[in-house]
């Protein structure tokens, strides 16, 4: 709630202890404010390992424009909040995925994009080299199905993640 300076009228400053006539005060829930900040600036790591990366690029480009949800791409994990795992993860890549995830600062979120990252997809059966789901390596918040998912599906996944972030309790006592 903001206090309209016009209401307090012109004149000398109010007595010490109270807020001055120029003050704008907003009273609210700190959890809500923090969650609003976090969900409105989901900077995602460019992590495209397969054809889902093409759809990820489309989602970031002008037609679908992920920017309007506050999601912009970053080329380094150290500036990222969100890891969109877009593509097949092989066993050779697995250690790099974990390394990149660990380099991201807290709080961090993961979207598993596409069938390969969800379950191994077309490589689920009879593949010696593909990890059968990125959730074997790192915790995943949202799974986006599709092979590959269209940009609308990815945007839906990001909105779902924003709803998850809205539910977070930052000041609740840790059990």
């Amino acid at each position: 709630m903001s206090q309209d300076p016009a209401q307090s009228g012109p004149g000398p400053a109010a007595s010490p202890g109270s807020l001055g006539p120029e003050a704008h005060v907003m009273v609210g829930n700190a959890d809500k404010f923090i969650n609003w900040c976090r969900r409105s600036s989901l900077w995602y790591l460019l992590f495209a390992t397969a054809c889902c990366g093409i759809e990820l690029m489309q989602a970031g480009a002008s037609r679908y424009d992920l920017d309007r949800f506050g999601a912009v791409f970053r080329a380094t994990p150290r500036q990222s909040d969100l890891m969109i795992v877009a593509g097949t993860i092989t066993h050779k890549m697995a250690s790099r995925v974990i390394r990149l995830y660990e380099q991201m600062p807290e709080p961090k979120y993961v979207i598993s994009m596409g069938s390969c990252a969800n379950t191994g997809g077309p490589f689920y059966k009879d593949s010696y080299c593909v990890v059968k789901g990125v959730d074997l390596l790192i915790p995943v918040d949202v799974y986006v199905p599709g092979c590959p998912p269209r940009p609308e599906a990815l945007i839906d996944g990001i909105i779902k993640l924003q709803k998850i972030i809205d539910q977070k309790k930052n000041f609740a006592a840790k059990a």
């Binding site: 066993h91 010696y128 059968k132």
Partner: peptide, 11 residues
Amino acid sequence: KYPEFYNGIKV
């Protein structure tokens, strides 16, 4: 023969 695990991850 496919290995069962690689680096502790199920193959």
